[in-house]
Design a protein around this nucleic acid. Structure first.
Lengths: 124, 124
DNA sequence: CGTCAACATAGAGGTATGTCGAAACAACAG
DNA sequence: CTGTTGTTTCGACATACCTCTATGTTGACG
């Protein structure tokens, strides 16, 4: 499902040198900005939090997410789609319901990108 | 200078439980979203990177930042203002020039917020 | 005091984003 | 097959955002 997500964060070695390591070039900045932009909305941030707080292999049904907001169901679906396109989450339909989960490693890689103290042994 | 920046990240103890720890409430999400939204633009991300790559106490003059982009000087100034209002950077005028730096600890706290493996001793 | 350079602010215009209701799609129950 | 429930897609609209030009502000220098 969903062949249309970014791979900014998930690229094998490292997504990029790190924000504080060296000035980003235009392409890196554009890709990373899409991920941060996806997190730059209160609704999406809460959605991410609700999904991520289920733990590593955890999943959440859309039917659990929607009633937590004073928004229409299509709007929630729209935000979930944006998070998916940003490469942060993925989903699967099982019967009537659709379950979402956080793509493994994405948040940690994003955290590593922001960390100013470089993790030892990243080469270069 | 600049009494108008967010304090989301800098709050004494912890800005919040962490994205994966527990579902964010509306207020936390709204505050955090402003920070991520500030990073959700390629230009601002490059600006942050250019400033942050100067290291801990490093500073950058605006006159060094502006010519790196194909944008007008007021546009760069506008983006710097947004980054400042998000509580990510601060600035000081020295003579004719204005110098910007990354507020200490902000990026690391943001990284800690995203990290899924909770730092030891956070209770619960 | 006058002028110049470095930045910031103000206002305007085009584009993207968030939200909705309506409709389409998928899966299951009778 | 038909109806019901859960979810996504489709247009449409109001608002926010990014960018520009024009103007203001601050400090340096004669």
């Amino acid at each position: 499902m969903s062949k249309q997500q970014l791979e900014v964060i998930g690229q094998d070695a490292a997504c990029c040198p790190g924000l504080s390591a060296a000035p980003l070039d235009e392409d890196q900045a554009a890709d990373l900005a899409k991920v941060f932009k996806a997190l730059g909305d209160p609704v999406r941030l809460r959605l991410m939090s609700m999904i991520a707080s289920r733990g590593a292999g955890g999943e959440v049904c859309v039917c659990e997410l929607t009633p937590a907001f004073d928004l229409s169901q299509p709007t929630i679906s729209h935000h979930l789609k944006l998070l998916r396109q940003a490469g942060l989450i993925d989903c699967e339909r099982r019967g009537t319901w659709v379950y979402y989960w956080v793509l493994p490693g994405v948040l940690d890689k994003l955290a590593a990108f922001l960390t100013t103290t470089q993790p030892a042994g990243v080469g270069a």
